[in-house]
Simulated scan of single mutants.
Amino acid sequence: MTNSYSAALLILLGLFLLGGVISFAKQGLSKMIITALGVCSALALASGVMRWK
């Protein structure tokens, strides 16, 4: 496992936001909202993976 709880938290946040992207896409909401959530999800996942040791 990891000693870095912030990395695990960032990965969980990224996965949560990714679920929101999928949900919003199924509901047919604005593409701008979906894009913003997707970018935030990607950033959170990337930073979580980079912090993982």
Rank of each mutant, 00 (worst) to 15 (best):
C40M: 12
G19R: 00
S23Q: 03
L29Y: 13
G38Y: 11
I33R: 04
V39Q: 07
S41Y: 03
L18T: 07
A44S: 15
I33H: 06
M1K: 10
A46M: 05
S6L: 13
G14Y: 06
L17P: 02
L13F: 15
K26M: 00
I11D: 02
V49T: 03
L37Y: 01
L9V: 13
A36Y: 12
Q27I: 10
L18W: 02
R51P: 06
V49L: 12
G14W: 04
S30Q: 07
L17H: 05
M1Q: 12
T35I: 12
S47G: 08
M32N: 02
K53C: 10
V21T: 05
S6A: 11
I34E: 05
I33D: 05
S23E: 03
F16V: 15
S23T: 13
K31V: 01
S30D: 13
F24K: 11
T35H: 04
Y5K: 09
C40W: 12
G38T: 08
V39L: 15
G19A: 09
W52T: 07
S6F: 12
A8P: 07
Q27S: 02
L37D: 07
L17F: 11
T2R: 02
L18Q: 11
T35E: 05
S47L: 15
K31G: 02
S4D: 13
M1V: 09
L13V: 14
W52I: 06
Q27T: 13
L18A: 09
N3L: 08
K31A: 12
L37R: 09
L10Q: 14
I34D: 01
S41K: 05
W52G: 01
V39H: 11
V39P: 00
I22G: 06
L12G: 15
G20I: 04
L10H: 11
N3S: 05
S6I: 13
G28H: 04
V49K: 04
G48H: 03
F16K: 10
M50P: 01
Q27A: 13
L10E: 14
M1T: 07
L43N: 00
L15P: 06
A42T: 14
S4M: 02
V21E: 00
A36I: 14
A7N: 07
C40P: 07
S30C: 01
A42N: 04
K26G: 03
L13S: 11
C40G: 15
G20K: 04
L10Y: 14
M50D: 08
S30Y: 00
L43Q: 01
L37K: 06
L12C: 14
F16A: 14
V49C: 02
I22Q: 08
A36P: 04
A42G: 11
W52D: 00
